[in-house]
Each structure stands twice: as C-alpha cells, then as structure tokens.
Design a binder for these strands. Structure first.
Length: 287
DNA sequence: CCGTTAACCTGAGAGC
DNA sequence: TGCTCTCAGGTTAACG
C-alpha cells in the first residue's frame, strides 16, 4: 500500500527521530516475511549506529557507520512504529494512524540507545528486511529499479527508448518498477487523470505530447502528495502526529460513480480491473 | 525475451 | 451473531 510519497514521509520522520542512534538489540518474533528475515541480523546490526535513512522507489535504506545497509520494503501492509521503551507510550511516528501499537503482527523489534524501539508490524507479511553487505551486492533489489521520478534520467528520450517495441497499456507502464520507481496503484490512477490518458491506452499509441505530460504530471502528483503528507486510507497514517491528507485530493482513486472533477467535463468516473488491480478514470476526458 | 495471471497472506466490510 | 465472499496502497514465479 505505501507508495513513494508515503515512504518519503516515513523516511523524513525516521531521520528526525532515530538518526545517530545505536542499535542495542534486535528481537525477531516472526521470521516469515516475504523473504525470511536473516537469522544473524541481530549479530550483524547490534552496535551499528544509524547514520542516515534514505529512500529509493518504495524502499527504505538504513545506512550505518560501516559498509552494511539494511533494506526495508513495507509490502502492502507493513508499518513502522517508534515507541518509548519503558511505558510503551507511542511517539508520534507510525506509518498508520493508531493511538496504540497493534497487539498482533509485531514481527521485528529494534531496540535503540535513545529509549526508543522501532517496531515493524505487517499483518499480511508481504514486506521484508534484507541485509546488504559487500558479498551480496548482486542480490540488491535496487539494481532492478528504473529511475527515480524526480531524477533527470526520467526524461523524454529514456521513455521513448523504453516503450519502443513494447505492447502494454499505459497504466501497467507507470506501475512497472523497472520503468520508474515508486508509483503504485493510487498514484498511477491519479497521474493518468492529470495526463488525460485512458489507463487502457496502448503505449505504442503515445505521442510526444503524451510522454511529456507523463513526465510532468508524475512529478506534480507525487510532489503534491508528499506536500500533503501522503495518502491515508482505511487506517490513517501519522507523520509527526499528523495524518496524511492527500486522499482528500484524489481525483479518481476510489471515486467510481462520482462526477469528474474537471471543469467543463460532465463525465462519470468508472472503475474497471486492469491486471487484477482496480483502475479509476473518466471515460469522457481520458482518451 | 515478453506479457499476463495467479499466488503469497490477513483483516475489514458487505451481504445474507 | 456468524458465515461467506470480495477486496486491499505490492511483487514475482510460472506459464504460454
């Protein structure tokens, strides 16, 4: 569920609260995430000082005072909570809005030397922890990602080349992490609305104007979402005590049967399924 | 190689 | 109240 904007917000919150903290102990309650949590993670990371936390696409990367790195992907339902050790009172940082730490599915607990404990909660267990060391550089999932949406390498010529001889629709293109990193189902739908593009449109029929619109609106939508603190649906997400508010700005996601927001368009938003994912669009102004 | 589908999981909500 | 069914912000193995 978390896409680029939500991970970006989470990254900022974590840097504000646990940068330069030292890991004193890691407790694994359940190793069975998408991939098994490394059994030696406690031994490898205990004593490490968190130098910085960065984001690439939908991945969080913990950097330490050594070559080691910890990669975290939240999958569909992963959340990170920082709680105070002694009284278990929450700090204001958790991916979801919740006044308490959930009782179930707290799979990994990382104790820090600043009286805080980072807890990884993930009911569906689609997320995972991966250690990156020199020896495993070839297993780095980041190697398979396309450019960051805000980077200069996500440009007209790159897209021209990427879509050449490919035969998929534009929605699947945006969600393909090898094409561009960080866009998921919500933002793919929203970006296509801003582009006036039907999600089913074949990428072989995209003209130059369409490509430029994709580049421009991808940046606009993601930046706007970050500005509003990400999207919080169902369970609300906190970022330093505030929930994300971008869901209030949705133009199409989850809004089937509503009227199109665009001025001078009287279309009714539709919901269809594309590659097993819900897709929302206005059939009047997205062509 | 390419594109599509099913599978991995649990929980919330709808409908009966 | 409780059962069954569907759906969910992601990724990828397996298949044709």
């Amino acid at each position: 569920m978390p896409e680029l904007p939500e991970i970006e917000i989470l990254k900022k919150s974590l840097n504000q609260n646990i940068k330069s903290a030292k890991i004193t102990k890691i407790k694994i309650n359940n190793r069975n995430l998408r991939y098994k949590v490394p059994i030696n993670i406690n031994k490898i990371l205990t004593g490490q000082i968190i130098k910085n936390i960065s984001r690439v696409a939908k991945y969080l990367i913990f950097h330490f005072n050594s070559e080691k790195k910890l990669l975290i992907h939240l999958g569909m339902s992963g959340t990170i909570h920082l709680i105070k050790e002694k009284n278990k009172i929450n700090t204001n940082i958790s991916f979801y809005y919740s006044s308490d730490l959930p009782e179930k599915h707290n799979h990994i607990e990382i104790k820090l030397n600043n009286k805080l404990k980072l807890v990884y909660n993930d009911p569906r267990r689609f997320g995972y922890f991966k250690l990156l060391t020199k020896n495993f550089i070839n297993e780095n999932p980041l190697n398979n990602l396309g450019p960051e949406p805000f980077s200069s390498s996500f440009n007209f010529f790159y897209i021209k080349k990427f879509i050449k001889n490919k035969k998929i629709n534009v929605k699947n293109l945006l969600m393909n992490q090898k094409f561009v990193g960080g866009i998921g189902n919500i933002y793919a739908n929203e970006i296509l609305f801003y582009c006036h593009l039907n999600p089913l449109k074949s990428i072989s029929k995209l003209n130059d104007k369409n490509i430029l619109a994709i580049i421009k609106n991808t940046k606009i939508v993601l930046k706007k979402a970050i500005f509003f603190g990400g999207s919080s649906i169902k369970n609300f997400k906190k970022t330093n005590g505030k929930i994300g508010n971008f869901q209030q700005k949705f133009k199409v996601y989850g809004k089937q049967n509503s009227l199109c927001d665009r001025i001078k368009c009287n279309g009714v938003l539709k919901k269809i399924t594309i590659s097993n994912r819900a897709s929302f669009f206005c059939s009047e102004c997205q062509n």
